[in-house]
Computed example of a mutant assay.
Amino acid sequence: MYSDDEGREEYLFKIVVIGDSAVGKSNLLSRYARNEFSANSKATIGVEFQTQSMDIDGKEVKAQIWDTAGQERFRAVTSAYYRGAVGALVVYDISRRMTFESVGRWLDELKSESPFFT
């Protein structure tokens, strides 16, 4: 919690979006943050984030939502982005059972990388 220039309380929460490659993490975030969707989106390299603000009971609440790469080669990079997260969204593709079967592995990684999720 912190105060803005006008003395109004503000809150910032870091949320990570995780899951296998090409399950729709970036499009999910794009739809939420900008109300956009791209059928031809490209794979995320490393990590990207969007901040969404909302007013709740006269307080500004910001969700900083981190979109992580799902490819195995970026796994070492993405583990650092769990730090400070207070929430996570695990995404899978309902048309690809393998991505659902990976959910347990993503949850295990989340628990091992962030003490908040243990």
Rank of each mutant, 00 (worst) to 15 (best):
S3Q: 13
D4Q: 11
D4V: 03
D5H: 06
R8S: 12
R8D: 11
R8T: 13
E9M: 09
E10S: 09
Y11K: 14
L12C: 03
L12F: 05
L12Y: 07
L12D: 03
F13A: 10
F13V: 09
K14L: 09
K14E: 13
I15M: 12
I15K: 08
V16I: 14
V16W: 02
I18M: 10
G19V: 02
D20G: 01
S21F: 11
S21H: 11
S26L: 00
N27K: 08
L28P: 07
L29Y: 04
S30A: 09
S30D: 01
R31G: 06
Y32G: 04
A33H: 14
R34Y: 10
E36R: 13
E36D: 10
A39M: 12
A39F: 05
S41H: 11
S41R: 03
S41G: 03
A43M: 08
T44M: 06
T44G: 06
I45W: 04
G46Q: 10
G46N: 14
T51S: 13
Q52T: 14
D55H: 07
D57P: 05
G58C: 11
K59Y: 04
K62F: 02
I65G: 04
I65L: 12
W66N: 08
D67M: 06
D67E: 04
D67A: 05
T68M: 14
A69C: 10
G70H: 04
G70Q: 07
G70K: 04
G70Y: 05
Q71K: 09
Q71E: 15
Q71A: 10
F74C: 05
F74W: 05
R75E: 15
A76C: 13
V77K: 06
S79R: 15
S79A: 15
A80K: 02
Y82D: 07
R83Q: 14
R83L: 15
R83I: 08
G84Y: 04
G84I: 03
G84H: 06
G87L: 08
G87M: 03
G87Q: 05
G87C: 08
A88R: 01
A88P: 07
V91R: 01
D93T: 11
D93M: 12
R96P: 01
R96M: 11
T99M: 09
T99I: 06
F100W: 15
F100C: 13
E101F: 04
E101I: 03
E101G: 08
E101L: 15
S102K: 08
S102Q: 11
S102M: 07
G104H: 06
R105T: 13
W106S: 05
L107P: 00
L107H: 00
D108I: 11
D108N: 06
D108A: 13
D108T: 14
E109Y: 01
E109T: 07
K111E: 05
K111H: 00
E113G: 13
S114K: 04
P115E: 15
F116W: 13
F116A: 08
F117N: 03
T118E: 06
